Computed example of a mutant assay.
Amino acid sequence: MNPKTLLASALIFALPAAASAETGPWTDVAPGAKIRVLTSDHVSADGKMLAGLEFQLSGGMKTYWRIPGESGIPLTADWSNSVNIDHVDFLWPMPKRAISKGYFDYVYDQDFVLPFEIAIDGESDGMSPKLVGNLLMGICGEICVPVTYEISKTLDLSAKDISVSFKLDAALADVPILDDRPNAPFDAVYIDATQNKLVVRPSDDLQENQSLILDLPNQNLLFDVPQNGPGSQLISFQPLRDISLADHVGSTARLTYSGRAGAFEKMVPILSFDAINP
């Protein structure tokens, strides 16, 4: 198990039963869907505060990962009216795969926390930092609807909120980290031009192979679930729209996966199929 996961689990069990995160009020954004904002009220040595969106989704409701999929609505956020804040970055936990009405998506459901980091302006004018955000996202049940969620919160830096920090640390346990293990799998992606698909050599960890997600950063191109065809030792990915992959040789792919050691991601080169070792 990833040491990060062990730490988060230990923190959860150490939390007194009566403690709860009450940072922000719940907002009903759609039938069966509530959101509230959590802030740790603590700035780390690198000038960042950990925060999160806590969701309560019931009755089969779901929302979407950073790559929403075929039918999902991506989460967008405008933080431009914030005060004494440099930028805000979402930290995306490992999603679930979902196929509904023939569409393939990456989703979150039930109760979960989407963590994010707030970079505090180190050269502020003395005013307390204020987080102001206008968020747009998809919340889906039987139908999919775009919903907005607005944040306007002056950040209290005087004392760390212990109970909220425990909850945010637990959410971080599911966020993929850079896979810098000495024997990390998936060193490259290869283009099989004859079948117009991408392939990778498999990991020794079956869970990593099954959970593997491939995407091309900054490109609107979605791939199907990983396949291991009969007689092949390679894992393959087919694009979900009619496009030639040959032009992507020399570019970069992002791989996201979860296994026995935790959740990881890495950037790898895309090479021609001739470069693969037998």
Rank of each mutant, 00 (worst) to 15 (best):
N228A: 13
K130Y: 06
D109T: 13
V175N: 03
Q195G: 06
A159R: 15
I177S: 13
K130M: 13
Y149M: 05
K167R: 10
P129G: 04
L172A: 03
D161Q: 10
D180T: 08
N183Y: 13
E117A: 09
V175R: 02
I143N: 13
P129C: 04
Q210R: 10
A170R: 12
F186N: 01
A193G: 08
P176H: 13
C140H: 04
S203G: 09
D179M: 12
A170E: 14
D161V: 01
V200A: 06
Q110H: 15
D156A: 13
K153D: 10
L136E: 09
D179T: 14
E117R: 09
P202Q: 10
G141S: 11
Q110Y: 11
M137A: 11
I118R: 00
S163V: 10
S203I: 01
G133F: 11
P230E: 11
C140L: 00
L172G: 06
I191W: 10
S152N: 15
K160P: 09
S163E: 15
S158W: 09
N196I: 05
D174W: 07
G231M: 14
Q210A: 12
D125K: 07
K153S: 10
V175Y: 04
A171T: 03
L155G: 04
D111V: 13
N209M: 06
S152R: 08
S211R: 05
E123R: 12
Q110M: 12
K160M: 15
A193S: 13
P230Q: 08
S165R: 05
A184L: 03
G138F: 00
L131V: 13
V145P: 00
K153F: 02
Y149H: 12
L136M: 11
T148N: 13
T148Y: 08
P129Q: 08
L216V: 10
N209Q: 01
M127C: 03
L221T: 11
D205M: 05
D179Y: 12
D224S: 15
E117S: 12
F223P: 03
V107P: 00
A188T: 04
L212F: 01
V225K: 07
Q210L: 09
I213H: 00
D192G: 10
N134M: 12
T148S: 14
Y190K: 03
S165G: 06
D169Q: 14
A170Q: 14
D204I: 06
E142A: 07
V113M: 09
V113N: 07
P185V: 05
Q219N: 10
M127N: 11
D109E: 10
I191Q: 07
I118M: 02
K167G: 01
Q210P: 00
F166K: 14
D224V: 11
N218V: 07
P217E: 11
N183A: 14
S163W: 14
C144E: 06
P226N: 02
L135G: 01
N134R: 15
V175L: 01
L157Y: 00
G231V: 13
D174I: 03
D224L: 11
L178P: 09
T194P: 04
D109F: 09
E208H: 01
V145I: 11
I139D: 05
V145W: 07
S163K: 15
V113G: 02
R201V: 08
D111T: 14
C140D: 01
Q227E: 12
L168T: 01
K130P: 06
A188P: 02
L155E: 02
I120A: 04
S152P: 03
K153A: 12
D204F: 08
V164Y: 03
I151F: 05
